[in-house]
Design a binder for these strands. Sequence first.
RNA 1: GCGCCUCUAGCUCAACGGCAGAGCAACGGACUCUUAAUCCGCAGGUUCUGGGUUCGAAUCCCAGGGGGCGCACCA
Length: 505
Amino acid sequence: MAHPLRTADHLRPQRALKGTMTDVPYRFDRNATAAGLAADYADLGIGEETGVTVRVAGRLMLRRDQGRLTFGTLRDSSGAIQLFAGVKWTADYDSFSHLNLGDWIGAEGEVVRTRTGELSVKVTSWVRLAEARRSFGDKFRGITDVDLRYRQRYADLWANEGSRDTLLARSRIISATRRWLEDRDFVEVETPIFHPIPGGAAARPFTTHHNALDVDLYLRIAPELYLKRLVVGGFERVFEIGRVFRNEGLSPRHNPEFTMLELYQAYADYGDMMELIESLVAHLATVMLGTTSLVYAGRELDLSTPWRRASLSDLVEEQTGRRYTIETPIDELRAAAGGYGIPVSGAWGPGKLLLEIYEKTTEAALWGPVFVTDYPKEVSPLARDHRDQPGMVERFEGIVAGRELCNAFSELIDPDEQKARFEDQARARAAGDDEAMAVDADYLRALEYGLPPTGGLGLGIDRLVMLLTGAEAIRDVIAFPTLRPEAPEAPDGPAGGPDEADRAG
RNA sequence: GCGCCUCUAGCUCAACGGCAGAGCAACGGACUCUUAAUCCGCAGGUUCUGGGUUCGAAUCCCAGGGGGCGCACCA
């Protein structure tokens, strides 16, 4: 954005229309949409008229003035339809032929197909529903300035059709996810966004304050601990699709607020979670793309089930040719991590070292889909001990297109063990790890009432949408991504006009 | 936080040390079947900001600001 200061002097002058169609109505009775007309009259022959009068509404995106004829392209949320106006049959023709691109209009007329074959509404009467006092950028090339696209999404959505398609796809993906889970007896719930104790993930939280209670609260970094409380309360299958907040950096793959699906299933373990999530993702790909084979970032990706399962240590060995486990002598792990350029902390145990080595050498090289299984207990304070491997837990991450798509485990249900894990985290926190978890005494109390064996899973909805829409930036799948606020001395809105007196108050 | 790149008219872009331009939009006009209509005309600028070098800076240098990408952090 070249000019943070955008004055109003480039606004179009308000244009008073001549004739009788000048009052802006409070409502408009539309009875047809662009897509509906295209479907209903697909067989209408060239030059034919239907005798059917319809009322359409939308934004005028293109205008082709021929003198005594004017063609307009009207876009509504379903698609585009041509408006066909003529001096002989259109009321206030002169004003119609001078409408600005971007104006919202409602029009009434007969459905016809022009002599050149374009399905059209032959406008007899029309009304301007709103004036566009700003233009929508280059009508052919749209808006390409990424900052402008994200800041003024309302303009981007008209200037770049792909933006709208992506957000529509997001809606369909979330809707299909809900339906799929509900069909399997999952119950959707809502849990608090204000948390007195941030928990459920390793991340720095945002802090806020409640005045009446005079307490600091945290915006949730994950809904996990509340959802498991609901399982304790008898909800055997629950899920939540909601916003979580992490006070971390921004990147093409990170937004400080993002949408997470978390679900918990009683009587299930992490193996069940693998089957569930690979089925769900394959289903969504089929719904959205008609296939489980897709191309992302120029590379083929096959989401058909079953996905590969491989242990973290095995994958590191595949990638590096060296085998590391939590049994590897710690000096050897430290040396190896240092050799990969990892700034090793003396406080790290073998589990943390192993995880760091995996993330540095292997994770980004995995294209997937693959379930990376069996993580060190040291780095997984909420996952249950592995039934066969001491020091490990039953946890997996689903890696797709080189990124973590989901994280799941057989949930830790033993309150004593959970208490010990929390205390380990608290020690790490005291030692300076500001992403370590805090002790949540109420959560321990809930576990003391009894959490049944439970499988749990968290999945990043934004990344899933990226995958299924081909978006390579998380900002493309979020309508209003987090941006640095515009300079406060640069009002650029309805109140930002040159007439300062209007703002006195 | 660090590194690299970038910022010119409302939008999309030229000019790259020598008169700041084009297309679209807007504004005025011509045109009875257009499809990014076409054509004629008019208007539009603190070249992100502030310094510096130079006879001369949009262009080169320094500092600051916005944005992008990478690293780090993370999902």
